[in-house]
Design a binder for these strands. Structure first.
Length: 412
DNA sequence: TCTGGGGTCCTAGGACCC
DNA sequence: TCTGGGGTCCTAGGACCC
């Protein structure tokens, strides 16, 4: 096979850059990117974590995912702005439109990362990479890093080199010089746990991992071990795919504003989440066989139960009833901080296959569809169940954006 | 007012069957 | 009459990603 040229385009501090660009375009004078600032959730709702940080904020040691409380300890005059997901999706879409001018083979890896097969550019690739980067900055108002190599893994590693607003290459011949000296935790798919395991055995750099015996790492860390060993050696050959991955599961969750200590309220949260999960499944014309519920308690301990149904479903009622049973099975009475419901083992619902079976309720299905239509047209709260009235609990819970596109698989 | 929400994939143990 | 062994399904939990 002919050598490929793959680009990985990564928006620098995506949410923060998009927020900054939007604000500048709407008359604000301060550029958030130039001051210590973060995009963060609402602390009153217990969503207070750092979603993105500016480079000046990073210099204070602030990291993505930490609590705003601790970020403020590190930098008392930190500017915190709330997220606007619709805004970010628009910015992301504009970038995709621009990139489409350069290659038809584009894979959206997440809201702020894109793989592009640019093999057709041949020797022009560097010039084009710079052109894309400049155009995004000039026309859209934010900066990106572009990593270039012969496969997706190396391109992704390259885009993570020095930031912001840079183009880097990491061709196979450059691995030893540019990638092997890096700490092993920098490698895609090595998180804190694996890093610790490797460090415990004296492996600190990507190069050291690369030089391990293949059989040794396989028997030690199984499949993930082989994967990271191959990555460390620059081995990866998946296609850039412009067709989305099939959805494997549909789930929603919420961290409640206060700990829930009684079954009645817990059921209401489960119902509100089941409404969203089921509606999303119906919207995609999918039915699922497995319902799972997971809870997180006060002390941040998470536990889950799941149930495989006899018949796949996307009925709000069945998902809710199953969730309640799972909840009753597992709940030990400790106050709950977070609820999650997920539907998996999905299949297409093209055929009205089950009309002969007992669980199938045609009336409910029609009702669900009618309600979905009204909710999509007039808003999620245009029709709500009466039990939520005056309860203070949102009748539908879940934060999936409109215009949703299937996200990445954890393996590129 | 300390710690979100959306995913995918893998493993290990037990049940059950031959 | 002192403990097979393979295979599949199901479940719970854990690792990783953005």
């Amino acid at each position: 096979m002919k050598n490929r040229i793959i680009f990985h385009i990564d928006v620098n501090s995506a949410y923060l850059s998009w927020e900054a660009a939007y604000r500048l375009q709407h008359g604000e004078s301060v550029d958030l990117r130039t001051i210590p600032s973060v995009v963060g959730g609402d602390e009153k709702k217990r969503h207070g974590i750092v979603l993105a940080k500016s480079i000046p904020a990073k210099e204070y040691g602030i990291v993505t995912g930490e609590s705003l409380y601790s970020a403020r300890q590190k930098c008392p005059n930190l500017t915190i702005v709330p997220p606007n997901y619709e805004r970010y999706l628009k910015a992301s879409n504009s970038m995709i439109d621009l990139l489409n001018e350069y290659s038809p083979l584009i894979q959206r890896f997440s809201i702020d990362e894109v793989f592009m097969d640019c093999s057709h550019l041949e020797d022009n690739f560097l010039q084009v990479a710079y052109e894309i980067k400049e155009r995004i900055r000039e026309e859209l108002g934010f900066t990106v890093n572009i990593g270039i190599s012969t496969n997706k893994l190396l391109a992704k590693m390259a885009s993570d080199f020095k930031k912001p607003d840079k183009v880097h290459t990491l061709f196979p011949g450059e691995i030893e010089e540019k990638m092997w000296p890096l700490p092993v935790g920098k490698l895609f798919m090595i998180g804190v746990k694996t890093q610790r395991k490797l460090n415990d055995r004296g492996i600190y750099t990507i190069g050291q991992l690369a030089k391990l015996d293949r059989e040794y790492i396989c028997s030690w860390l199984k499949k993930p071990g082989l994967l990271i060993w191959e990555y460390a050696n620059g081995i990866e050959n998946s296609r850039v795919r412009n067709t989305p991955y099939p959805v494997k599961s549909i789930g929603n969750s919420t961290t409640t504003a206060y700990d829930v200590d009684n079954k009645k309220e817990a059921y209401m949260f489960l119902l509100a989440i089941a409404e969203m999960v089921a509606m999303r499944a119906r919207n995609l014309d999918l039915i699922g066989k497995v319902v799972s519920v997971s809870l997180r308690d006060q002390s941040f301990f998470s536990y889950s139960h799941q149930k495989k149904l006899n018949i796949a479903t996307n009925s709000t009622k069945i998902i809710y009833e199953t969730s309640k049973k799972l909840f009753d099975e597992m709940w030990n009475g400790k106050p709950i901080r977070r609820f999650n419901i997920s539907l998996s083992e999905l299949s297409s619902n093209e055929f009205c296959q089950l009309s002969l079976l007992e669980d199938y309720d045609e009336r409910e299905e029609k009702l669900n569809k009618a309600i979905d239509q009204i909710r999509y047209k007039y808003g999620y709260n245009s029709i709500i169940r009466s039990c939520f009235l005056h309860s203070g609990i949102k009748p539908i819970i879940g934060g999936v954006m409109e215009d949703e596109y299937p996200m990445m698989s954890s393996i590129i």
